[in-house]
Design a protein around this nucleic acid. Structure first.
Lengths: 253, 253
DNA sequence: ACCTGAACACCGTTCAAGT
DNA sequence: ACCTGAACACCGTTCAAGT
């Protein structure tokens, strides 16, 4: 099975949109794309992405490993489908929110971070196991477009807002998880003492003091080491940048 | 070999700073951390990250696979070391640039994207094979701090700028590579026709028209599909956000 | 058309042994 | 202390065969 359809569209995109025909004739057909993806996500949720092997996914469904290959060209395709399925935004009663486009932007950003934080395995997926044209990525973009509608921006500007929003949210989640898992967690005074032998004021005049005080990559006990404050600032800069642009656009000259 | 030192510092960090003692006594010692990392990077540059196996790295150095494990606790540690070694910023004559902090910020962002674009395998590294305290990450932060020095910001604000800068640059490189490799490259009118059957104006009233015209995930022939314009906008929003903050700080009240 | 079973060509990593 | 050689416990994926 090739991982492209007869067209330029990746097979995973076609499957996600339900465009990959799975004919009804023949034996049992106990399996389906949906069931396979669902089972894989359950395993990732429970035991992490490394636990998602073709064997284990199949086993959890009561089928042979090889039966999966009738539905999926390779493991990467399955991962791409998992990524999209896990990206489903929460239902909202009214959209965009009446508080204004800034609130809409902010809510979308927060919803993205909640998705990633609930499923950190999503940020462990290989870079290429994602596609722009998947249903839930489109849904995100559509909601963002709706929130931005009252603004006097051209298409490219709107697209830029959406991409920056997504990049910021994902990037800071990644950073947050890295910091939580890596060095920072178990830092103590002794470690900092040790690091300060190489991170000297001579070599890092501006940064060395911050490392010592814990302001840079600091430990949780110093009140740093979480990065959500920096994310909110970035979001605010994005929003005020858009405000400025909108003001220019509506009063030209 | 454990992947932590006796302290909370990850072994990879200690190695990168030259704090992991490799005693001189004993047989040949033909190997070193530097040579191993260098060899691994050469392989990644030539044949991609997937080609970097312990066997191939060792082989390219003329040693047994297992000899590597005397220097590196596991493959992940090697990947972390590769990440940092490949993150070396270009030498600059004068820093920060005399044109002002905005130019400094911009130059740093561009330098980051050039590093990633030259070595796309860096963006394929698993999320956890990165550490904040590695030498070249520190060097980046130090340069950014130097560029920001004239500004009346507090420490947390400066840190926020640096993190947003890094997140933006990396995120857009990732996006750019995804778009180049994935669906977009080989899109034609027929594909769009096919997609427009599921991406309908009913379900995606604002986005569907953009997909048809190629403004969203468009093909190169329509002039879209590259994302550097959106990155520059984000960078500009970041910069004007900082300008605004700085103006507030210097004229309080 | 759907699923199975056996086999292949890899991985990273262990362990005990050599010098 | 440094390196080797053989072995282990996995992977994803192929292929030919069953129903």
């Amino acid at each position: 099975m090739d991982d492209r359809t007869e067209h330029g569209i990746p097979r995973a995109v076609a499957i996600a949109w339900g465009m990959a025909e799975t004919p009804q004739r023949g034996p049992r057909r106990g399996l389906s794309h949906e069931r396979i993806v669902e089972a894989a996500i359950e395993i990732a949720d429970a035991d992490g992405l490394a636990a998602v092997t073709m064997q284990r996914v199949a086993e959890s469904l009561g089928f042979t490993t090889m039966s999966l290959y009738r539905y999926v060209a390779n493991k990467g395709e399955l991962l791409t489908l998992m990524q999209d399925a896990a990206s489903k935004l929460p239902k909202v009663d009214t959209w965009p929110p009446p508080e204004g486009w800034q609130e809409g932007i902010r809510q979308l950003a927060i919803q993205l971070t909640e998705i990633y934080r609930a499923r950190t395995w999503m940020l462990e997926l290989p870079r290429y196991e994602r596609a722009v044209l998947m249903p839930n990525a489109m849904e995100f973009a559509e909601r963002a477009m709706a929130a931005l509608e009252p603004l006097p921006l051209d298409t490219e500007q709107r697209v830029a807002v959406i991409l920056n929003l997504a990049v910021l949210a994902e990037g800071f989640c990644r950073l947050e998880i890295n910091l939580a898992e890596e060095e920072v967690t178990e830092f103590d005074a002794h470690d900092i003492q040790l690091l300060s032998e190489v991170i000297t004021p001579e070599r890092f005049p501006l940064l060395a003091p911050l490392v010592v005080t814990g302001s840079w990559a600091g430990s949780p006990e110093t009140g740093h080491g979480h990065v959500s404050g920096e994310f909110e600032r970035g979001l605010q800069w994005l929003i005020s940048g858009i405000e400025q642009l909108a003001a220019q656009a509506s009063s030209p000259g």
